[in-house]
């Protein structure tokens, strides 16, 4: 069962794979390790999807099929799960993903003006990617930074107290 010492199971960077075959092998090994965290093999599905997303950048039909094969969960169910959650990438996104919170606490502090700014400056609307592939925009529900609203994540970085004065400066750091 689950007696494995499973601390610090953050996936080590999977590194750059050279070809499809070695990528598949890496994913297979990774999922094998992750399976040990759960008493039933199918419960590995969410971590397995994250591992595939980290490896391939997004979850294509092929990637989903591979995850299905490696986890033993049927393809239909994998699809059902992946489309339920909003943070699995089922299509390729830009190099940098802006996750802008527009929920009530951020709205009160002017998140709607930031949304307009992104639209006017980069022609970005929710779910879209800039033509040069630099940014994608995902409008978020609350990201738990309401005391420093408006807030956003860019990739894995948190940015707080954003305003029309500093948003451009922040985004300039992401090429």
């Amino acid at each position: 069962m689950d007696t494995m010492r499973c601390a610090a199971d953050t996936p080590a960077p999977l590194g750059a794979a050279k070809d499809g075959a070695s990528e598949s092998a890496m994913l297979k090994d990774k999922i094998k390790v992750l399976k040990k965290l759960y008493p039933h093999a199918r419960s590995v599905l969410l971590p397995a999807l994250y591992a595939a997303q980290q490896l391939y950048g997004w979850l294509s039909e092929d990637a989903l099929e591979e995850v299905s094969r490696l986890t033993g969960v049927s393809p239909a169910e994998v699809k059902g799960v992946v489309t339920f959650y909003s943070l699995f990438k089922t299509r390729p996104l830009g190099r940098n993903v802006i996750y802008l919170c527009t929920n009530v606490a951020c709205l009160i502090m002017g998140a709607d003006t930031l949304e307009d700014f992104l639209h006017n400056t980069y022609s970005l609307s929710n779910g879209e990617t800039t033509a040069d592939g630099r940014f994608s925009l995902v409008i978020m529900e609350c990201i738990g930074a309401c005391d420093k609203a408006p807030a956003m994540l860019v990739n894995d970085d948190c940015h707080f107290n954003i305003s029309m004065d500093n948003i451009r400066e922040i985004l300039d750091n992401y090429k």
Binding site: M4, L46, P47, L49, S86
Partner: peptide, 14 residues
């Protein structure tokens, strides 16, 4: 007494 603990990451669903 044995107790093992790990983190499970959600995926964006309130």
């Amino acid at each position: 007494f044995r107790f093992n603990l790990s983190v499970h990451r959600g995926a964006g669903a309130y």
